[in-house]
């Protein structure tokens, strides 16, 4: 049963009836705000530049120092436990636009936090983005475990969406929803560290 998270909410990722999740997919999706239809819209609409959101994952150690980044330039963490399925340049189509697959059982023990972010590569703000969400799915069953939907737009170009973190031997998810600004994942580092 999927949980719809609100900003700040935390959930445990332990399976019902015991056992731990091994492999999860963090899916991120978005749509560009549809330009206003009709005469006015076409006359005075914005240029045709597409909105390119990028999903990324940063790995942090217990001292909250970044260990590795998974993003469109590096589609796999160096240890191989986290894989990005590829860069979507337009956000077109239904469902997840970018996916990051995490093999929790293979994440190195010194990695304590995985932070998932979305940034608008070409600089449009979230005022021009609709239906942005992140959702966590159990790979082995295909079941959605949690979903966090961004409400409203905003005058910023990036969002710290959520983190997965180790707590007393199990993984938990924390919906962060913190707006910030940046073009690529490294520029979001201060905002990510603030959320750890």
């Amino acid at each position: 049963m999927s949980v719809t998270l609100v900003k700040g909410q935390k959930i445990s990722l332990a399976k019902e009836g015991g056992g731990a999740l091994t492999k999860v997919v963090m899916g991120l999706g978005w749509d560009a705000v549809q330009p206003k239809k009709g005469f006015l819209g076409s006359l005075f609409g914005r240029g045709q530049t597409t909105i390119d959101l990028d999903a990324s994952c940063a790995l942090f150690d217990q001292n909250k120092q970044p260990v590795d980044f998974v993003w469109f330039r590096q589609l796999q963490s160096r240890d191989g436990s986290i894989v990005h399925t590829g860069d979507n340049l337009t956000g077109e189509g239904e469902g997840d636009d970018e996916q990051i697959i995490v093999d929790l059982s293979r994440v190195p023990p010194d990695v304590i936090y995985l932070v998932f972010t979305v940034n608008s590569f070409r600089g449009q703000t979230f005022n021009e983005v609709e239906n942005a969400f992140c959702r966590l799915e159990d790979c082995s069953t295909g079941k959605e475990l949690a979903r966090y939907t961004l409400s409203g737009g905003g005058d910023y170009t990036a969002m710290i969406m959520a983190k997965l973190y180790r707590h007393q031997g199990e993984w938990k998810m924390h919906a962060l929803g913190e707006p910030t600004n940046g073009q690529v994942v490294e520029q979001l580092l201060p905002a990510m560290q603030a959320g750890l």
Partner: peptide
Amino acid sequence: QKSSPEKALIAMGRNGEYDEVFSLD
């Protein structure tokens, strides 16, 4: 113009001791 269309070349800005870091693919 901080990026080529397909993101092969990106100017990522000042970083540490560097005045500019380019990310290339």
